[in-house]
Amino acid sequence: MVRNKAVLLGAILLGLLGILAIALVREATTASRSTTLTRGEPLRAAARPALTAAEESYAVALWPMHNEIKTSALKMTLGGLAYKLKEIDRATMKAQVDAANETYRRAEIRIRKLQPPPSLQKLHAEYLDAVGLYKQSAAEMVRVFKDGRDEHLVAAFPMSKEAGEKILRVGNTLWPGEYVPN
C-alpha cells in the first residue's frame, strides 16, 4: 500500500516536472520567436527615447494637420511645376496655390489651439514657423498671376524648401518612421 502510494506520488511528481519542462521550453521559444519577428519593424523607433504620454498625445493631435499640410505643399509645388512646364495657365496655378494657402491658414488655427508639453514647445514653434513659411511662399507664388513674372516662383522657392526641412525635422521626432526604406 505504502509502495503504491510512493509510486503514485512519484508519477505525479514526474508529470508535474514534465509540464514544467514543456512550459519552460514553450516560453523560451515563444519569446525568442516574437523577438525575431518584431525586431525589424520597430527598430527605427526603438533606438530613440520613447515619447511620454503627453508628447504622444500631441503627436497624435498634430498628425491630421501634418497630413493636410504635406498634401497641400506637394500640390503647391506641383502647381508651380506644371505652370513652368506650360501645362497649366496662370489662373489655374493661382487657384491651386490659393487652395493650398487656405489649407495652411485653417491648419494653423487648429495647430495654435494645441497645448504641447513643455518638452515640445520648441518643436511646436518650429512647426508653426514652417506653416508660416508655406503661407509666405504661396503669397509670393500667386503674384505671378498679377504681373506674369516667373521671378516670384524663384523667390517663393527657398521658403517652401525651408518649410519642407522644418516639417521633416519635426516628423523625425514625432513620427520617426514617417518615411521607410523604399
Partner: peptide
C-alpha cells in the same frame, strides 16, 4: 494618403515623396 499610418509610409501612391524631395 501621403502617409498610410502614423509613423509609417509605404504603399499608397503618393507615399515616399516628401515635399522637400519634390521641391
Amino acid at each position: 494618403a501621403v502617409n498610410t499610418s502614423p509613423g509609417g509610409c509605404a504603399r499608397s501612391p503618393a507615399c515616399g515623396y516628401p515635399p522637400l524631395t519634390v521641391d
